[in-house]
Write a protein that binds this DNA or RNA. Sequence first.
DNA 1: CTTCATTGACTGACCAGTCAATCAAGATAA
DNA 2: TTATCTTGATTGACTGGTCAGTCAATGAAG
Lengths: 196, 196
Amino acid sequence: MPRRGMERQRRQELVEAAIAAIHETGSLDVTVGQIARRAGVSSALAHHYFGGKDDLIVATMRHLMSVFAGHVRRRLRQARSPRARLSAIIQGSFTADQLQPAAMSAWLVFYAMAQASPGARRLHHVYTARLHSTLVDALAELVSRPTAYEMARGIAALIDGIYLRCALGDETPDTAEAVALVEGYVEAMIGGPRRV
Amino acid sequence: MPRRGMERQRRQELVEAAIAAIHETGSLDVTVGQIARRAGVSSALAHHYFGGKDDLIVATMRHLMSVFAGHVRRRLRQARSPRARLSAIIQGSFTADQLQPAAMSAWLVFYAMAQASPGARRLHHVYTARLHSTLVDALAELVSRPTAYEMARGIAALIDGIYLRCALGDETPDTAEAVALVEGYVEAMIGGPRRV
DNA sequence: CTTCATTGACTGACCAGTCAATCAAGATAA
DNA sequence: TTATCTTGATTGACTGGTCAGTCAATGAAG
């Protein structure tokens, strides 16, 4: 029973189905048919709305990125000091919904995809650049400029590395633990309490 | 002109061709045919020696891991202090040959593959566990036990994260820079010079 | 004449993307 | 109100292409 205005909902459903399907197969070897079936529609409809497989996947990636950006932005708005802004970014990176195995799987697959697909690569650059500049911005008032750049690279690498390990590890990823690891790095670098 | 004892050589050639082919296509969507052609043999021969595509890819992964392990082991043998052992691991992780774009591409693809292929997953576990225990071992005499565990996870995540960024970044990866980033983390955590 | 290296040719399966057709809900006109 | 038109939703069926894996055959060296 087709009704008007289905497009928004169907796109949403297909994107969510894509995440689930990617997680289940564990790779980009998902077929459009699998994703569509999971969303309860035909594969032709997926093509109708997204044009092609790549576009569907890139849209899924864009969705995850916007979830990430949303979390960070919300926390950033409430942060009252540079140091708090830094923590906002770190905590926003490890919210429970993002540490969900399915989301992790999708991220990892996207990393791999960014090597081959131009669209995915462009999107990944946006993510990287935005994270880096947000970090440098927050760090600018805390440390010297060269250190800010180094730390931004370190924090970003640490976040990506933790994502990777969450995606591949058997243990269920733990928000607090991940945050603590990155915060530990920050504290050590900006001169927090030394632990030996 | 078929001669005896070709197996070893052919396997080697196929593994190297696999790395190159993966880099070129930027994904696991390489066909056995592409790899075989690059190695100058037929795809049937690749199947003959490796059984199936998965086995070929897993063998390639194993090759990269043994290169990595070799570098670390060699450096470790010459290290005379716990701190030097730590540096040995870090430096062994970022040798020029491993930072080659083709090798980076392959690593990244393997990370993604480890989600789906049981063989790849098992191998990845070996890599992770070995790195972790080597790190904890080196750290044991430098910091408290809980800190050693945390630092080991941090260093490992940092290394993986840097690999990821090298694989996806446009800048050519730089050994010295990568080493400096990880060493900076170590120094900050074990109480080296503070930078502000 | 055995054993290993090697391949061309084949197959069975799968999949992205296309297309023409169907269906229903709202808009418009009579 | 009813009849008709329009437009978006939706799909089944099809196609062209691709690829992993198989197999029987060929060739050379020992």
